[in-house]
Write a protein that binds this DNA or RNA. Structure first.
Length: 261
DNA sequence: CCGAAGACCTGCTGGC
DNA sequence: TGCCAGCAGGTCTTCG
């Protein structure tokens, strides 16, 4: 489900309920969802105060007065400030005021405690990365551009939707080799990434099926997608039919006329 | 260094 | 109507 704009929207909607609160307890309903035994996680978290709710790439970081609770929603994870438990509720975080539910149908999502968030192996956040840094990353890679955009150790936060959308906006074929792109095209791609991520956050993210923010509200950016999920429909720029191919096992949508290698 | 393939999970949709 | 293949916003590991 969630890429940078969705995780950022969850962060913004969840922050008021968790910042400055003290963790009273955590109940793990599906042991699968935590990287630690329930008693270990409880020992690490109970009594800790949440100083701030941060985001790096697609990770939500509860910065505590000691250590960090790292939540990754993967495909179908949700953090909710209200609502009843469901068959898919995997953990319940109890605060000194209020309760947070971690729901996840597919059980790919993970909770884990980190002594230090520097342990996360992530590239610079896609939102706000400097052009010079972005250009150096692309210049240093012989991978195809789309798989590189999806590599969280290269650049953090871009997923399948926004990679396809940004490449379309920049007029770049997803199969193009990263270090073959001209400086002008790299600049266009950087601008497209920044503009699209910001617009998606402004719309509350993209909801294809599952995604909702911490208040249970769907996003609106799916209505603005130009290629993602539009296989066989006319490109909004030129009318050519949008194609779907598979790159590194991921569905890839692009306009064969607007996007060149 | 890069990519292909399979794994991890469950639910939904479309085609026959 | 019913079943099954294929697909889904992510990431990890193994192998060539």
């Amino acid at each position: 489900m969630p890429e940078l704009p969705e995780v950022e929207t969850v962060r913004r909607t969840l922050a008021p309920s968790v910042e400055r609160r003290v963790i009273a307890g955590i109940e793990i309903l599906s042991p699968h969802c935590a990287d630690h035994r329930p008693d270990e996680l409880r020992a690490a978290l109970e009594g800790r105060r949440v100083l701030a709710l941060a985001r790096r790439g697609k990770h939500l970081l509860f910065r505590l007065d000691r250590g960090v609770l790292d939540v990754h929603l993967r495909m179908t994870g949700k953090l909710l400030t209200a609502g009843d438990l469901t068959p898919y509720t995997r953990a319940v975080l109890t605060l000194d005021r209020g309760t947070i539910l971690f729901d996840d149908v597919r059980q790919f999502g993970r909770l884990r405690y980190l002594e230090d968030e520097a342990l996360l192996r992530l590239g610079p956040d896609a939102l706000g990365v400097e052009l010079t840094v972005f250009a150096a990353i692309l210049h240093g890679s012989r991978a195809r551009i789309k798989p590189l955009l999806l590599d969280q150790e290269a650049i953090a936060g871009i997923g399948n939707i926004y990679a396809d959308e940004a490449l379309h906006a920049a007029g770049i074929d997803p199969r193009a080799t990263a270090n073959w792109l001209s400086a002008a095209r790299v600049k266009r791609l950087h601008q497209a990434v920044e503009r699209i991520l910001a617009a998606a956050i402004g719309a509350g993210g993209s909801s294809i099926s599952d995604y909702v923010d911490a208040d249970g509200n769907r996003g609106g950016f799916q209505a603005m997608h130009r290629v993602y999920g539009r296989t066989g429909q006319a490109c909004v720029a030129c009318g050519t039919l949008v194609r779907r191919i598979v790159l590194n096992q991921r569905s890839t949508h692009f306009c064969p006329r607007c996007q060149r290698r």
